[in-house]
């Protein structure tokens, strides 16, 4: 079962997304900020990371850079709100593979994840 690490500071968003993913056969771990994500990445070695951008303690962009340092092969998909173009662009340059725009559309999340982890 592919492992997905879900990073978002909003518990509601995590809950929502985790439900969708588990129902579709993914094993889900959650992190509530970038720092948490980096720590959990090392522990869990997920197949894919869904990374929010605006978070306390450590933001998503920094987290992408940190995770890439640990694992250059890491597959990270940014979760972005409209209006975060430049940040997402920076994240892609830093090694994120793709992005999803919030509010989440279930089909889009699933199709995106599928592209990377099948």
């Amino acid at each position: 079962m592919p492992k997905v690490l879900l990073v978002d500071d909003a518990a509601f968003m995590r809950m929502r997304c985790a439900k969708l993913l588990t129902e579709n056969g993914y094993s889900v771990d959650e992190a509530e900020n970038g720092q948490d994500a980096v720590e959990k990445y090392q522990k869990i070695k997920p197949d894919l990371v869904l990374m929010d951008i605006t978070m306390p303690v450590m933001d998503g962009l920094t987290a992408v850079a940190e995770i890439k340092k640990i694992d250059p092969e890491a597959k990270i998909v940014m979760c972005s709100a409209l209006g975060q173009q430049n940040t997402v662009m920076s994240a892609i340059k830093a090694g994120a593979k793709d992005f999803i725009i919030k509010p989440y559309q279930p089909e889009k999340i699933l199709s995106t994840i599928k592209r990377f982890v099948g």
């Binding site: 306390p56 962009l61 920094t62 409209l82 209006g83 173009q85 430049n86 920076s90």
Partner: peptide, 16 residues
């Protein structure tokens, strides 16, 4: 689409 987010990420990171 809406406004573009600040590209000045250094500043954001610094703040964080």
């Amino acid at each position: 689409c809406d406004e573009a987010e600040s590209g000045d990420r250094n500043k954001i990171n610094e703040a964080k």
